[in-house]
């Protein structure tokens, strides 16, 4: 293939014109409107809290998986992987079914006499947290399980022989050795949750305005592509450190034989 390069003298003015057309106005707009700042902070807050909740719920489950007999383990992994590949949209929709005003959740609460009349669960923070924890549960459990499953039996036996009570053995041996799983699972959840769109959009209300929704609105409703791009670039800058840590760990892991 033959390529014709324009002479350098015609590139420079073009480049200069291109650079003159650039400005930081969109970033200034991001900084001047409190709405964006609030959405970024809300996203980080939701991601941090839901990652902690996922860790608290996922750890006992992953621990139980790792202690199950071999045959059962393969089955359990399969059962966790299955929802992992099912559409986010469908899983969020399943919760709309349950949480709506005359849905099963309210019916159950009414039947048990916990509430007097139906509660509006949709469009609340609670619904967003339920949706996120539900959708990301497999992302937390699988790395935790992978780390827990590798821990040698003899370590616990040694701890018991030396007189450590089970809780101490758990806290001093199991938890530190499962740290790679804790870090991988937390990053695998935290990073995408910050930019999450589908869950807060369908389950949340105006109180849970996350940055993913802001970007979506700027792009699809306001048709303001430059602002949407600026929102995305700032989001990427926020996430670049966790993303690099995640990449580095994954690359090392696979080099060591998957």
């Amino acid at each position: 293939m033959r390529r014709v390069f324009p002479p350098a003298c015609s590139i420079l003015p073009t480049l200069r014109r291109f650079l003159a057309g650039l400005s930081f106005d969109n970033y200034a707009a991001l900084g001047s409107d409190r709405l964006y700042l609030a959405a970024y902070l809300k996203s980080l807050e939701v991601a941090a809290f839901s990652t902690l909740m996922l860790l608290a719920l996922g750890y006992p489950f992953a621990y139980a998986m790792a202690r199950a007999p071999r045959r059962l383990q393969a089955m359990l992994v399969m059962l966790v992987v299955l929802p992992f590949w099912t559409s986010f949209l469908i899983r969020v929709y399943a919760w709309i079914n349950i949480l709506q005003r005359d849905g099963l959740f309210n019916q159950m609460l009414l039947a048990l006499g916990i509430v007097e009349e139906p509660v509006g669960w949709l469009s609340t923070n609670t619904a967003v947290y339920i949706g996120i924890v539900y959708s990301y549960f497999p992302f937390m459990v699988l790395p935790l399980y992978a780390a827990l499953e590798k821990i040698e039996v003899s370590l616990h036996e040694a701890a018991a022989d030396l007189g450590a009570p089970p809780w101490k053995a758990f806290w001093r041996i199991t938890v530190p050795l499962s740290r790679p799983g804790i870090v991988a699972g937390s990053l695998l959840c935290f990073i995408p949750i910050v930019g999450e769109f589908v869950i807060p959009d369908l389950l949340g209300g105006s109180a849970t305005l996350m940055i993913g929704q802001t970007l979506w609105t700027e792009f699809f409703a306001n048709r303001d592509w430059p602002i949407a791009s600026a929102v995305a670039v700032v989001l990427l800058c926020l996430l670049i450190v966790p993303i690099l840590i995640y990449q580095h760990r994954q690359a090392r892991e696979i080099e060591q034989g998957g």
Binding site: A64, M65, R67, L76, P83, Y134
Partner: peptide, 25 residues
Amino acid sequence: MRKGLSSFNLVSAALGLAFLYLPIA
């Protein structure tokens, strides 16, 4: 990892699976 499930393990496994599958069911 030591094999064999305590009752705590069984309960967390059962609750986890119920949480994953009930909404879909």
